[in-house]
Computed example of a mutant assay.
Amino acid sequence: MNPIIAFLNSFGNVSEDMFAELKEISVYKKIDSGEQIVKLQEVPTKLYILLSGVIRCYLSSESGKDYNKSFYLPISFVGSLTALIKNKPSSFVFETLTACEVYEVDYKKFMDLCKENSGVNTLYSKVLEVVYMKYENRLMDLIALDAKGRYLELRKQVPMVETLIPQYHIASYLGITPVQLSRIRRKLDSY
């Protein structure tokens, strides 16, 4: 089975016809490492299905320090959801950490398709539920876990995190310094 169809079917039943309609409003793209697919204060018009590679979502402070909010691995939906829904500038930057392959989906056409096709609308609702649950879990981790616990949770979610994502990005995501992350990793390795 096509891995994209299998991924979409994890949210609900996606027929071949529905997949064809979704593919019609999508464009396959290869993107180099270090490209910003959503820029800060840009009003986005696209959402993405990540087929290969790693993308990060981050916020920059006024002093220029980056704070990683999320990492996206294949196969997943990627996009500045609040900015897309509100048609407002994005508060976040989405940047490829590696070369990536994506389907770029026109958000307006996707929303039009949701109005026309109840199956696509149901799929969108299911995706939003999963996105919200991931957000809620991330918030719980930040509130309830110490740095070591957050790191262990990240390693559970992304088993090869050290080989996929640079240490300074991991540290930023965990809300700690790279030095603190090195100490945590050293302690874990000594067990």
Rank of each mutant, 00 (worst) to 15 (best):
D106V: 07
K108D: 07
T96P: 02
D112M: 07
N87L: 11
G175Y: 02
L22V: 03
E42S: 12
Y48M: 13
E35K: 10
R138P: 06
L8K: 07
Y135D: 14
C57W: 02
G12E: 08
E136S: 09
A144L: 09
L50D: 09
Q41R: 15
I165W: 00
L142N: 12
I4C: 08
L22A: 04
E153R: 11
L50K: 11
V105C: 00
S76G: 14
V102E: 03
E136A: 07
K29H: 11
L84N: 10
K39V: 00
S118H: 12
L59N: 15
M133I: 10
E162Y: 00
Y135H: 13
L181T: 08
K115Q: 14
S76T: 09
L97M: 10
P166I: 00
A171S: 03
E101H: 05
S76Y: 03
G53Q: 05
A171T: 01
S61M: 05
L188I: 15
K29M: 13
Y124L: 02
F77T: 06
I75S: 08
Y58T: 05
N13S: 11
M140N: 11
Q167R: 04
N9Q: 10
Y72L: 09
F77I: 08
D189G: 12
I31Y: 00
L97S: 04
A99R: 12
S90K: 05
E116C: 07
F19C: 01
P74I: 01
V38G: 09
L84V: 02
I25K: 00
T45D: 15
P178T: 02
S33D: 07
R138K: 14
T98V: 06
R185I: 13
I165F: 01
L73E: 10
I143Y: 11
N2M: 01
L8W: 01
